[in-house]
Design a protein around this nucleic acid. Structure first.
Lengths: 188, 188
DNA sequence: CACTTAACGCAAAGATTCTGCTTTTGATTC
DNA sequence: GAATCAAAAGCAGAATCTTTGCGTTAAGTG
């Protein structure tokens, strides 16, 4: 529910949405202090268009952040659940803990009064995890529950990214995967 | 690092800080649409004072939110680790998942560019958990690591509060405590 | 092709944010 | 306990951003 009434998916509306998002990304890359009039000017659009469509800068940034957090490829397939989960977790943590990752995450939450964008982001991770688990199950591997992975692998990583200023290394991700594997796997 | 240069802890500065925080709470309770001029007027202060001290409305709201998230009492002591953790977790989840709790949490994160307020919030939970664990250890009980509790009890609860719009019940908190107890306790 | 209406542009009015300058006052020193 | 220094507050005008009404454009529909 992000371009507020998600109607008129084609034509001019779509072009406006695209050029506004693109303007935000461009200005963010330049390290500019973002404002609605600035974004609108860069996008070749009037400020009132942005206000009417997104409400305010935060909601626009939240929408852009969600798009940036959307995975661009399915998780790599190593033919082994443990390897798949570890690789995915390490890359995911690295991306989320990077300075841009942290700020996309914060933007996504900040301009999202009803939590719908947050839900979408969580859905991205869940879909990726689900795919890894499904592939493993199809190979006949013994797999944990998606919720278990969300609660004990994804949640701890995201919690630290959001609430702990310090650095996070791949070892943390691997330790969590090991915990899921050796202590939280459902009993056969 | 919230009243930006945290100097001049007493006198007028302290009074201004207090009346501004109080004004925010009062206006939030009234369900008003907050703006800096509105808050300033209610606090009997000039808007420029607020801008100079807090930078913008979000940072002010972040500071207020942190104060609201600060625990007002140590966790109850039931003389038993499992009972202590369960009661604490149930209450904590209930508070964080409530509509005001969710919005304080979001405010705290949103107006916190460097993550310091988030770190303080995380510290609140950590301190509470640490107290529960220390008391249990002093009783001679076998206790898990603080980090284990943060990663596998606090993190999943907060993750769901932030990223899942739906309701959360005490059962979830209890299940997490059970998992920490029966599957994540360090081997003796 | 005509029709309906959501979405955009424009411009003026309204509200917020910023800034330079002055005044107040908390902390420190003699 | 008075004098001093500097941080923080007040004030007011300027700059910027936000809102709103109204006319226009163009997407979707029959």
């Amino acid at each position: 529910m992000s371009p507020r009434p998600a109607v008129r998916p084609g034509g001019r509306s779509a072009r406006v949405q695209e050029s506004v998002h693109w303007a935000v990304r461009e200005l963010q890359a330049e390290g500019a202090a973002l404002t609605v009039p600035l974004v609108a000017a860069r996008a070749g659009v009037t400020p009132s268009t942005v206000y009417r469509r997104w409400g305010d800068l935060q909601e626009l940034l939240s929408d852009v952040a969600v798009e940036r957090l959307r995975p661009d490829a399915p998780p790599a397939d190593h033919g082994d659940l443990r390897a798949d989960l570890e690789h995915w977790a390490v890359v995911f943590l690295e991306e989320m803990a990077s300075p841009p990752g942290r700020s996309y995450l914060r933007d996504a939450l900040a301009g999202d009064p009803d939590g719908s964008n947050a839900g979408v982001c969580s859905g991205f991770a869940r879909d990726q995890v689900e795919l890894i688990l499904t592939r493993a199950a199809e190979r006949g591997e013994h797999v944990p529950d998606v919720e278990t992975v969300m609660d004990h692998l994804v949640a701890p990583m995201i919690y630290r990214v959001l609430f702990r200023p310090g650095p996070l290394d791949a070892g943390f991700a691997r330790d969590l995967v090991a915990t899921v594997f050796y202590r939280l796997m459902p009993l056969p």
